[in-house]
Design a protein around this nucleic acid. Structure first.
Lengths: 221, 221
DNA sequence: TCGGATACTGAACGCATGTTCAGAACATTA
DNA sequence: TAATGTTCTGAACATGCGTTCAGTATCCGA
């Protein structure tokens, strides 16, 4: 076909409609609704993507590629992973993409692992620069700390987002992100500036136990 | 009926089977599989619970009641909310309950809000005692900090759990929890003992901006 | 202009699900 | 024992889904 206003391939149009529907109605949105949005029959989705799983795979790949591109582009600070999603959500036209990512994170699919891994890597870089600049204290295990902080940020985001509330109103997403950041910023800064625990007895005790345990029972990896 | 080994009402047996199935196969587990597990016809579920939603409501209520009971009972420390789930998971026979809770947290139903709210309240108490004992530093907003820490704990838990991996092997849950705690304990203790940010310029800047903003634009709540 | 490939439709199939319902089995009370 | 209400079954219904398929329109190279 490809008749009027041919700014997109039909296949791409279906993919975009799918991302939007998945973001709005959840990852179990029916193929027929996607087809309807794209102005297309359900059978054509099968023709282009083989199956529902194929469509999901195409969406995942496209989203990951988009993230990769936009990460290098507008993400100057690129530090906190949640901040990246918040920034993306503000960007005109990127709300469906962010919504799709949130749905995936919630359901824990394959994309989740890939995205989280990428965010952990970014956080590692970000923290390393902070350590070099002297604004961030060094860690005994930089990788573990980066993963922990990433999990904290993404996890609390997931727990707080208007979950279950189907459908997810994408138009409200930017405002919601802004409110969320506004809500957590002060306690977050506080807890990462002034230590929650007043002394290091707990940490010392753990390190002590870990040290002796490692020297005695070295059987397990 | 209520014939042999009548240690439970049929209704209770169905509820328990439902919690187990929901935990294992997800909250969209078919009623027929639950009925089969309970040795009962699907129609009987309707007779006792009215609908699928009614069964879910019964499960939610039962789980919340169990949590309330066990909180007062064995939760001596009761501090970190994730720790409570970890402890419960170790307890013989409570793995399905924990699995069900994890599924609910992931899907963000009504139980989620209730449970999270309860855990936030517990954390508030726990932190208050720590502050009084001098082991925990005070906060500018105790409620906000408690919520943040709860979200961190639960969120990172959700993000890390063997998600999407249907079915969830309940027998492996205790071991998984142990491994998870072992993995995050050191970086967690570190980040809450030695401040991540080396100075308070960021926090000060935020408090500064917030203070002046509050004095000038007091329109929004 | 022809012919084959590709894009696309719309109806149909097969399956799983929640729910309904008529009736059987059972318990309880009179 | 008879009557009555509760528990429970098994088949059936209605619906919505992913997928298949035969057939039609459209494009493109020879």
């Amino acid at each position: 076909m490809r008749s009027v206003s041919d700014d997109q391939t039909t296949k791409a149009r279906i993919r975009d409609a799918a991302i939007l529907r998945f973001a709005q109605d959840g990852l179990d949105a029916p193929l027929r609704s996607i087809a309807s949005d794209a102005g297309v029959s359900a059978g054509l989705i099968m023709h282009h993507f083989g199956s529902r799983a194929g469509l999901r795979r195409a969406c995942d790949d496209y989203v990951q590629a988009s993230i990769r591109d936009n990460k290098a582009k507008l993400m100057v600070p690129a530090g906190a992973p949640a901040a990246m999603l918040a920034q993306l959500a503000q960007l005109e036209g990127y709300a469906p993409l962010v919504g799709y990512i949130l749905r995936c994170l919630q359901s824990g699919g394959e994309l989740t692992s890939r995205l989280v891994e990428g965010m952990v890597a970014d956080t590692v870089d970000y923290l390393r620069e902070g350590v070099r600049a002297g604004t961030v204290s060094p860690s005994r295990d930089e990788a573990a700390r980066a993963r922990l902080l990433t999990d904290f940020a993404l996890g609390s985001l997931l727990l707080n987002l208007p979950a279950g509330k189907d459908p997810l109103i994408l138009a409200e997403l930017p405002a919601w992100f802004a409110a969320y950041v506004d809500r957590i910023l002060q306690p977050t800064l506080e807890v990462f500036t002034e230590p929650l625990l007043t002394d290091s007895t707990l940490l010392d005790a753990y390190l002590e136990g870990q040290g002796s345990a490692q020297s005695t029972e070295r059987t397990t990896s």
